[in-house]
């Protein structure tokens, strides 16, 4: 899922302080799971902002709404009837949701309420870690299911590098070297032969190096 973190309330206040009517728009997908922009977070933020602005003597209409997704037009259409009632939309979705909402409601300013961080997994409640950088050419089949692109600080394909010591990465003693994990996993799968195979130079054009990307699937297009 896409992992996001809450923005400080002070920053959000700065974003919306000049508006009189705002809609706080949550998203039921990834940001709900990582407890940054779901229905509950929308409620807490709305309460906090109402209290703050009332306290400042400013009358501000702050409404709450949470959509199934903000990265799909059909769900964003659900606020088509009410969008005109607001001066601005504060989206608690990931960067995708914020942008797609801004595209659909072009005449309204749309502000982000979260910082979008990475594609990751929930290791435990309150701990999310990165697992994928969406490089566009998955190498997990050869690396024992452990991604050197997202989990190695240098993104190297033929590791480990000289900075790996006692299974830890040189950037932090807390961080396990991805290539250490790969070798251990291949060993347990009895596939160490795969480690001997050298990766050719990776085509990074499918990563961000090739500019903004798109997927066109004619087989599913209507």
């Amino acid at each position: 899922m896409i992992v996001a973190d809450k923005k400080p309330i002070e920053e959000i206040i700065e974003e919306v302080k000049d508006h009189d009517k705002i809609l706080i728009l949550g998203c039921n997908e990834c940001v709900t799971v990582c407890e940054a922009g779901g229905k509950k977070e929308v409620g807490v933020l709305a309460s906090a902002l109402r209290i703050y602005f009332l306290n400042q003597g400013k009358e501000m209409k702050i409404d709450e709404r949470t959509l199934e997704r903000q990265c799909d037009q059909e769900y964003l259409d659900e606020i088509r009837d009410v969008a005109d009632d607001y001066d601005a939309i504060l989206s608690l979705a990931c960067g995708v949701g914020v942008q797609f909402t801004a595209e659909q409601y072009f005449s309204r300013p749309v502000y982000p309420g979260v910082n979008t961080c990475f594609l990751g997994a929930t290791e435990e409640r309150g701990l999310w870690t990165e697992r994928c950088q969406a490089c566009g050419q998955c190498v997990l089949a050869s690396t024992g299911g452990i991604c050197p692109i997202s989990r190695c600080a240098k993104r190297i394909l033929n590791g480990p590098c000289g900075g790996s010591s006692n299974g830890k990465c040189e950037i932090s003693k807390e961080l396990t070297c991805a290539w250490h994990l790969i070798v251990e996993r291949l060993k347990s799968l009895d596939r160490l032969d795969d480690y001997e195979k050298l990766f050719p130079i990776k085509d990074w054009s499918t990563d961000r190096a090739g500019g903004p990307r798109k997927v066109v699937r004619e087989d599913v297009q209507l």
Binding site: A48, L49, I51, Y52, N55
Partner: peptide
């Protein structure tokens, strides 16, 4: 923490 941030 939230209350402190918003001035209560």
């Amino acid at each position: 923490k939230i209350l402190h941030t918003i001035g209560l």
